[in-house]
Design a protein around this nucleic acid. Sequence first.
DNA 1: CCAATAGTTGCACTATAGTGCAACCATGCA
DNA 2: TGCATGGTTGCACTATAGTGCAACTATTGG
Lengths: 125, 125
Amino acid sequence: MQIITVQPEAIFQALADETRLRIIRLMVTTGEECCLCELVDSLLEPSYKLSRHLKILRQAGLLSSQKEGRWVYHRLVMEASYLEPLHATVQALPDLDEVYSADLKRFHERLCLREEGRCRVGILT
Amino acid sequence: MQIITVQPEAIFQALADETRLRIIRLMVTTGEECCLCELVDSLLEPSYKLSRHLKILRQAGLLSSQKEGRWVYHRLVMEASYLEPLHATVQALPDLDEVYSADLKRFHERLCLREEGRCRVGILT
DNA sequence: CCAATAGTTGCACTATAGTGCAACCATGCA
DNA sequence: TGCATGGTTGCACTATAGTGCAACTATTGG
C-alpha cells in the first residue's frame, strides 16, 4: 500500500519511457495484475530490464507488487485522486506504431496459460 | 496549430520537470494565456530558463505560442483526446510544498497589470 | 538436499537533460 | 536611426537515466 507521497514530477517521469508506458498501458487496458515473466513474454524484453522499470513504477506510486511464492504480481495502484484521470490519459494515447496492440495480443495469449488465474509456466521465449 | 504527432513518452517527459509542471499547472488552473515576462514574475525564474522549458512544452504538443509585437503569448493546446484527462490529472496533483499556490498568487497579481487583457509592463523583478 | 527457475541488483558505459553565462535576434519607441 | 527591452540560443559543464552483462537471492519440485 502506498502511504508515502510522491513528488508530482516523479509520476510523469515514470511514464516518460516507452517500456514503462507499455507496461502501464497493458495494465490500464486490461485491468489485470501480472508477474514479470508474463510481461517478458508480452513485451519481448529481457527480465532484468523490465524488473528495473517495474521498480521505478512502484517507487512512483503507480504500481504495487506482491510476492506469491516464486512469482511477484504487479497491479495498478488506484488510491489517489489523480490516478483515475492519469489512467484515462494513458488509455487515450494514440498507438502510433501498433506497439501496444501487439503487446496486448501477446499478453492475452499469455494469460490463457494461467491455471486458476495464476501464472504457472515461467518465461517461454 | 499542432499537426505533427508526438511520441507518447515525450508528452510525459515534458511534464517530468518541476518548472514545466509549474508552468502547465498555472495555465490549466487559470485557463489563461500568458507571455514569458508574466511567467518570469510568477515563477521567479530567469527568462532564459523558462524560455527553454516553454520550447520543450511546445515541442511536446502541450502549448502553442503566438507572437504579438514584442511579446509571445503561450496557451494550452486542447486538440487531442488525451489532453483533457491530462489536464485533469495536473489539476488533481497535490500541492505538497505550496509552490503552486504561491505561483498562482503572483500570477494573479501580475495579470492585474495588464491593459485591455494584454501585457504591457515587461519583467518587473 | 540439489538443481532449476522467477526475479533482483552491482558495475561499467553511454546518452541525454537541465543549468548559467553570455551573446544574440527582433520589435517598438524616442 | 539608435537604444531599450522581450525573448531565444550556442556553449560548456554536471548530473542523471537507460542498458547489457553477470552475479546474486529466493523459492519450489524432484
